Computed example of a mutant assay.
Amino acid sequence: MPFAALIPPLSVATAVAPLSVLLLVAAYAIGSLSGSLLLGKLRGVDIRQQGSGNAGGTNAFRTQGLRFAFGVVVIDIGKGALAAWLALRYAPVGADWSVTAHGYLAAFAAVLGHVWPIWHGFRGGKGAATLVGALLVLWPFAVPVLVLIWGVVLLASGYVGLATVIAALSLPLLAWLSDAGAPRLWFALTAAALIVFTHRGNLARLRARTESRFARARLLHRWRRS
Results as ranks from 00 to 15, higher is better:
W139L: 12
P117M: 13
L138S: 06
R225Q: 09
T100Y: 03
Q49T: 14
V93T: 13
D76V: 01
A208N: 08
T100R: 10
F197E: 08
L220W: 15
I118E: 00
V93Q: 12
L189W: 05
A91N: 13
N59V: 06
F61S: 13
R213C: 15
G31I: 09
L203C: 01
G151V: 06
L185A: 14
K79Q: 11
F187M: 09
L219W: 12
L220Q: 02
H221G: 09
A101K: 00
L82I: 12
R200K: 12
Y28L: 10
L171K: 04
V21F: 08
A69M: 00
G57E: 01
A17R: 05
G35C: 03
G56I: 03
R200W: 12
W150V: 14
G121V: 10
R218L: 01
R207S: 05
P140A: 14
G124L: 06
R216A: 14
L39A: 03
A26P: 05
S157M: 03
R216G: 11
W97N: 05
L174C: 02
N54L: 05
A81W: 08
A215N: 11
H120A: 13
G53I: 02
L220C: 02
V196G: 04
P18S: 09
G40F: 02
A217I: 00
G201V: 06
S34K: 03
V93L: 14
A192T: 06
Y28T: 09
G127Q: 07
P183M: 10
L173N: 04
A29S: 11
F187Q: 10
A101H: 00
V72T: 13
H114S: 15
L171Y: 14
G113K: 12
G71C: 07
L6C: 10
H199Y: 08
G113L: 05
Y159I: 15
T58P: 02
A134T: 06
G181Q: 14
N54E: 12
A60N: 09
F3Y: 13
A95G: 11
L37C: 04
G31E: 08
S170R: 03
G151A: 14
I149C: 02
F68Q: 02
G151L: 15
G158F: 10
H120N: 05
S98H: 14
F141C: 09
V165D: 07
Y90G: 08
L185F: 10
L66P: 00
I7S: 01
V73K: 05
T130A: 09
L39H: 03
S20H: 13
L203Y: 01
R205N: 02
N54Y: 04
G127F: 09
A188T: 00
V143S: 04
V153P: 08
